Simulated assay, not measured.
Amino acid sequence: MPIEAELKAVVRDPARVRAALRERADEQLNVYRDVYYDTPDRRHSRDGREIRLRVVDGTRSLLTYKDPVVDRDSGSKPEYETAVADPVAMDAVLRKLGLEEVIRYEKRCANYRLERSGLPLLATLVAVPELAGTFLEVEAVVEPAAVPAALRVVRQVLAELGIGGEDLTTELYTEAVRRVRSTTLDDHGRT
């Protein structure tokens, strides 16, 4: 069972962090369009589970299932992901299975593949148009026993980039987007 050992932080100086990442790895720019699904009673969300259909740059699609967190301080979760040939058909399958769309949003990402202490890492600078600020995610996909060691490496990388513990957050983008939308809509769903 692979676990996404990940830390996420608010970035106070995005230009400096981006320059530092570009010194360490090639930059790959991507736009993710994410749709999250749940049962009508929101059972999966209540249990900390996620079902996501992601379209990357309009050309590649991924179906992801995440179990509840295994490390509350980091938000690290077991993750299962597979490529999807037809996202429209997959959306139909999920809906026929009784799931419904609960939220959709866009992430603009700058991805950097790094290696530290023999561990392959993905660092991603993230901007969500609806949210203020820029975020940095650093993750490694590891087996459960390796999560603590992987998180130590992730913390080292964050420290090298000038990201301190006070910048870390476990708030999910889905929660943040939902909060922003709820404050901008009236009782009839209008802005």
Rank of each mutant, 00 (worst) to 15 (best):
residue 71 D to Y: 11
residue 70 V to F: 14
residue 37 Y to F: 13
residue 95 R to I: 04
residue 57 D to A: 09
residue 99 L to T: 06
residue 97 L to A: 14
residue 28 Q to Y: 08
residue 75 G to I: 06
residue 82 T to E: 11
residue 60 R to Q: 02
residue 93 V to S: 01
residue 81 E to V: 07
residue 59 T to G: 09
residue 87 P to V: 02
residue 42 R to S: 08
residue 29 L to P: 04
residue 48 G to C: 06
residue 60 R to P: 00
residue 96 K to Q: 12
residue 45 S to P: 00
residue 106 E to A: 06
residue 98 G to I: 07
residue 68 P to W: 14
residue 78 P to F: 12
residue 32 Y to F: 13
residue 98 G to S: 08
residue 96 K to T: 10
residue 81 E to F: 04
residue 30 N to T: 10
residue 54 R to V: 00
residue 61 S to C: 11
residue 112 Y to V: 03
residue 45 S to G: 02
residue 105 Y to L: 04
residue 102 V to N: 14
residue 91 D to W: 09
residue 43 R to S: 07
residue 92 A to H: 08
residue 39 T to C: 04
residue 92 A to L: 13
residue 28 Q to V: 10
residue 88 V to Y: 07
residue 66 K to T: 00
residue 79 E to N: 12
residue 76 S to Y: 15
residue 56 V to D: 02
residue 47 D to G: 12
residue 32 Y to M: 10
residue 55 V to L: 15
residue 65 Y to S: 06
residue 115 E to M: 13
residue 67 D to G: 12
residue 70 V to A: 09
residue 116 R to F: 02
residue 30 N to R: 15
residue 82 T to A: 15
residue 115 E to Y: 10
residue 53 L to I: 07
residue 27 E to F: 04
residue 36 Y to T: 00
residue 70 V to G: 11
residue 56 V to I: 12
residue 66 K to L: 10
residue 109 C to V: 10
residue 113 R to C: 05
residue 105 Y to F: 14
residue 90 M to I: 00
residue 52 R to M: 06
residue 114 L to P: 02
residue 62 L to F: 12
residue 57 D to G: 11
residue 51 I to V: 14
residue 29 L to V: 07
residue 107 K to P: 02
residue 85 A to K: 13
residue 44 H to T: 03
residue 112 Y to S: 03
residue 68 P to R: 13
residue 95 R to H: 04
residue 47 D to H: 13
residue 63 L to G: 05
residue 71 D to N: 10
residue 109 C to E: 04
residue 115 E to W: 03
residue 117 S to V: 00
residue 107 K to I: 00
residue 117 S to M: 00
residue 74 S to Q: 09
residue 78 P to T: 08
residue 110 A to S: 13
residue 100 E to Q: 14
residue 30 N to H: 15
residue 101 E to H: 09
residue 60 R to D: 04
residue 78 P to D: 14
residue 39 T to G: 08
residue 110 A to L: 01
residue 48 G to K: 11
residue 41 D to Y: 10
residue 39 T to S: 13
residue 78 P to L: 14
residue 91 D to G: 05
residue 108 R to V: 03
residue 64 T to C: 05
residue 98 G to H: 09
residue 92 A to Q: 15
residue 52 R to N: 02
residue 32 Y to E: 15
residue 61 S to Q: 10
residue 114 L to A: 08
residue 52 R to Y: 07
residue 118 G to Q: 01
residue 34 D to R: 15
residue 76 S to I: 01
residue 75 G to C: 03
residue 26 D to E: 13
residue 66 K to M: 09
residue 75 G to V: 08
residue 61 S to L: 08
residue 36 Y to S: 00
residue 67 D to P: 01
residue 53 L to D: 02
residue 118 G to E: 04
residue 113 R to T: 14
residue 76 S to C: 04
residue 103 I to M: 14
residue 91 D to N: 13
residue 93 V to W: 05
residue 60 R to Y: 09
residue 42 R to D: 04
residue 92 A to P: 01
residue 42 R to N: 05
residue 75 G to W: 14
residue 25 A to W: 03
residue 114 L to N: 13
residue 116 R to I: 03
residue 25 A to K: 04
residue 104 R to Q: 12
residue 66 K to E: 05
residue 70 V to I: 07
residue 100 E to H: 11
residue 63 L to Y: 06
residue 50 E to N: 09
residue 92 A to T: 06
residue 90 M to H: 05
residue 29 L to E: 13
residue 46 R to N: 06
residue 35 V to K: 08
residue 64 T to M: 11
residue 71 D to W: 12
residue 116 R to L: 00
residue 96 K to M: 03
residue 46 R to M: 11
residue 70 V to P: 02
